[in-house]
Amino acid sequence: MARHSVCKVADVAVGALTEVKVGRSPIVLSRLPSGEIRAVGGRCPHQGAALRFGCVSGTTGSDTPNELTYGCEGEILRCPWHGFEFSLRDGLPTTPDSESLTLRLRMYEVEVDGDEVVVVT
């Protein structure tokens, strides 16, 4: 277990992505609307796109065709290439897995030490 001070708390905002490097590994950080800071691997688990170019958004729901609801603002990370959606709450995709393709964001433990954001690897 290694602890890495990666940026200031003020550098991580709701609805935004902040990329830091731990060694040569990119990690992106975002703050959930609830206040928690999330740190996830900086490459999309699909084809490796740099997630710092992605977007933090909400997502849609529906039980009836052509009637959309929208929610979870600030909790969804979308890949900049294909738009695959992942929840920043748990790193899971919004779509079901298949046997041939399991997609998960790599989630890192985050600690706040004073005004420093610390990522545990």
């Binding site: 997502t59 849609t60 529906s62 009836t64 294909h82 738009g83 695959f84 779509t95 298949s98």
Partner: peptide
């Protein structure tokens, strides 16, 4: 369809399973 669903689910969230399933 699975690929289209993964990248475009926001438009058609009434689909609850992978199309292949």
């Amino acid at each position: 369809l699975d690929r289209e669903y993964r990248q475009g689910r926001v438009e058609v969230p009434w689909i609850k399973k992978l199309p292949s399933q």
